[in-house]
Structure formats: C-alpha cells, structure tokens
Design a protein around this nucleic acid. Structure first.
Lengths: 248, 248
DNA sequence: CGGCAGTTTGATGCCCGTCAATAGTGGTGG
DNA sequence: CCACCACTATTGACGGGCATCAAACTGCCG
C-alpha cells in the first residue's frame, strides 16, 4: 500500500485487477485512464436516493458506503478497498441505495455504468471477477449482520479489525506487523454499531489485555492472534477463504 | 399467493419470472422442469461452509439464509420469496457463506450452478433481471444493517414488517388487508436481532396502540400506515422503489 | 386427551448509550 | 516557530433498553 500501483509500467492498477488476459487488461486500462480523480479529506461522492450514474473503483485509499437515519446517526454498510468495484445501485438500478464517501486522501476512478456494463459483457473474465467480488461482499455483509444482531461489542470490534486486516493485508492475519486503518474510533463505531465512547473503552481493554497495540487514527499491531480470533468468533483461515475474492 | 402459479398454463413460474422473451422463458422452464422439489416443515438445504453446488429458486413458500454463531444464536441474513434467485456462494464460489433453510411447506427448484451460469450467459435479459435482484438484495441488506446498528427494537420490527409486506404483496403497503408471514415471533427475532420475548412485547404494544392487528404465526393487518411508517423510519413509496426489483 | 410448539407476562440485571469534562494531536496561519 | 483551533481520544457517572430466567397460557396435531 505504500506507493500507488498506478505508477507501475504497462497496466496501471495491475496489482489489484489482473484478468490473466492481456486484451482484457488493456481494455480495462483504457476504460479508467480518463476517469482518474484525486480526493482529499472526507468527501461525499454519491448521496443515497440520487441518480446512480457511476461505478466507483478506488485506486488508492478507501471508500465507504453508508446510510444515515432521520436522527442523523450513520451506519457504514461496507468499505471498498483498492481493487474492489463499488456499485451503489438499488433495485431500480437508476438510484443509489447508499451514500458513497471517501476516507482521507486517495485516488479513484468513476466509471459511467453503461461503459462498465459494456466492458463486463465484452470480457467474461472480468465479469467472473466481478461476480466473485459480489459474492465476497455478500459473505462479508452476512458475517457482519451476524455480529451486529447477536454479539457483544467486544466481538463486533474484534471481528471488524480481523476483517479489515485481512482485506488490507495480502499476507492475511499476521501478528507483530503494524498495519494502518484510515479510520477514527468514531468511524469504527459507525461500522460496528457502537458509540465512539464504547469503541474506545473496548479497544483499550483489548490493548491492556495484551491482545493488540494501537495508536490514534488506528495503526494496529496484533500480538495475540488466538485470543483476538476467539473474541471475534472466527477461524482466520476460514474467514479469509469466505470473504476475500481470489484475484485474476 | 393462494395457489401455486405453477398450475398456470404455458410457462410455470411465469407470474414471477417473465423475461418478455418467449425463448428465454422457455429455456427457463426447461431449466427448472426436472429440478422441482417439495418441502415440508423447516428443513436445511445447505450448510454454511459446505460445498455450494446449487442456486435455489423458491416457487411456493419462503426460504431463508442464516448464520449461526458458536453459542448457537442464529441471525437470519435474508429471506428469499417466490421469484427470487438465491445463490449462497461465498468469495470462493465453491463454498456457501450461509445456511439455507425452508420455512414451512412449499416448492422449490435447485439448479446446479454451472447450468444456471450457462443460462445467464445465453440469455442477457435473464442476466439483467438477476443483476437487478442482486442490487435489490444489497439495498435490503443495507437498509437492515442501518436498523440493526442504530435503531430501537420498535423501529427494527416495524421495518421488518414493512419490508416483508412489500415483498410479499404486489400491491405494496396497503392497510386493512390481511397478509400472512410464514414466520414465528422467534424467527422474526432472529431476523431483527431481538429475543422472542422482546419481539412479543413490542408487537403487542403496536397492536394495543391500534397500528396493526395480528394472530399467532403472524397474520398481520395494518391499520395505521403513517404511524407504522414513522416507527420504521421509511417512506413506503421510496422503500418500494429501493428494495423491490422490477420484474421482466 | 396429552404433549408440544408457540405466545404471553413478570422480575431482575447488565451492556451500552448519553452527557460531560479533560487531555492529546495535527494542521494552519501569523 | 509558536499560538491557535478543530478534531480525536480518554475517562467518569448515570440511566434505560433489552437479554435472561421462569412460569403460565394457548392452540394444534396425533
């Protein structure tokens, strides 16, 4: 994650989106070339209920999809990391089901939906990758709904850390490796359905218990993976197979 | 919902799955003809983590996808109604992300995934309908995650009733029309993340307030739709456009 | 008619939200 | 370079919503 894969020769974005087919890769590069865009801070790219004209591809930095209730409380529905394709369409396809917001600075491509669909039809290997990503998103959301509905705050937070660690780190859940989440405790709370106060108390208790260490704006190091996995009620290997799509 | 659309002439299932193209309809009929199956009671068709070989099409009665945590608590992830296509695959596509369970007696088709995918490739209109259904499922899950994370038990239950009413009733959210949910209070609790005791107290309070009436095994009649919609924090028309895919 | 699954109601306790106040952090401009 | 400010993190006190346990009641099916 240190430098943009963008700078690589040949097919930009190749680290994340490799179809094993030179022509499909070239078509993909052509598709996003003109559509790159820089972002800084937290900025809203799409509002729920507005016309949904674009598919979003983060290249650097994360996006999130969120919904806001009438009281102003926000629930984060999912994150999109580099290599993911985010289509916020609702059942009607013409309007968005959720807000799309950037997290900090980064780079992304916004592709008109028609262009994206033409690309998928023309390149079955891309359609296959997209299908695996959709299945992965479904599996993630199912896993999180289980925690949201039935589990304690501790379990929800431990699970969220495991999920995001797995998604952001190609080596999976490893100990003693620092890793950065571009996420405040407030945002983590909006992800797991807890107040930022309770997130703080819980994560702090985990740190005191020696399970992990962290610094503000969430640079996390896992120390005791078995305990963390037990808190999250997961098997690391199994979870990885369930929620991480195979590339290419 | 009284009699199976199955009994109709021509293309069985036509009431739910009409592609506006005779050939695609015929191919669909051929696809599921041999694969029909009766169900009774609550029976498990697929376990999370097992190989995921089939796509499920309920024809009569409902299915649910659910996940169970180590303590035995169950969270229902989504329901599948007649006309929906349920693919429980996880990121790896080879294994299921969740259990698939029937609710009471009914009829369904189980289609091997390869056959289903060949059908989608051969009939773009079917692929389009499937895409709209996937978007609808995403919108539903997002909407429910918002309630699960941020809302009171009353809001969650009111929302669940509105969602299921909308999905099961082609005329949308209408008052003074009895409608049947094949769901116990226990199951409703597993859907909205509440204990069956609390579901009972809440729904009973709604009945005392004159918002709705119901009888055991949930035959519901809505009396005061504005109040119910306010409890659920929805706009009925908007919600329908968001979570109900257009047929055909 | 007995049994079983579902519904209803009460009593008790705790997890977690809310309010409030303090301390830390980074970014910006003078 | 430092002062300032907005944002974030931390900690305490208090109350309420919901889980849990337990016990009757209902209706249905064999």
């Amino acid at each position: 994650m240190e430098h943009a894969p963008w700078s690589q020769k040949g097919h930009p974005f190749a680290a994340y989106w490799n179809l094993g087919c030179a022509e499909a890769n070239a078509a993909f590069a052509h598709l996003i070339k003109q559509l790159l865009r820089e972002t800084r801070g937290r900025c809203v790219l799409q509002l729920a209920g507005d016309p949904s004209a674009y598919v979003f591809l983060p290249v650097e930095g994360w996006l999130m999809t969120a919904k806001v209730d009438p009281d102003g409380a926000r629930q984060i529905v999912d994150f999109a990391l580099p290599g993911d394709v985010l289509d916020p369409a609702s059942a009607s396809m013409a309007y968005a089901a959720a807000d799309v917001v950037t997290l900090g600075r980064g780079r992304l491509a916004m592709i008109p939906r028609e262009g994206w669909q033409r690309y998928l039809v023309a390149h079955p290997s891309a359609a296959g990758l997209f299908a695996r990503q959709s299945a992965a998103r479904y599996a993630r959301m199912a896993e999180r709904m289980l925690r949201l509905g039935k589990s304690s705050g501790e379990t929800r937070i431990a699970y969220a850390i495991c999920e995001l660690f797995l998604r952001a780190n190609p080596f999976g859940l490893v100990t003693h490796t620092p890793f950065h989440l571009p996420v405040t405790q407030q945002v983590l709370g909006e992800f797991v359905g807890l107040s930022s106060v309770h997130v703080n108390r819980t994560i702090r208790a985990m740190a005191r218990a020696g399970v992990l260490t962290y610094r503000g704006q969430l640079d996390v190091v896992i120390h005791d993976l078995p305990t963390l996995a037990a808190m999250a009620q997961i098997d690391p290997t199994e979870l990885q197979a369930t929620i991480i799509p195979s590339p290419g």
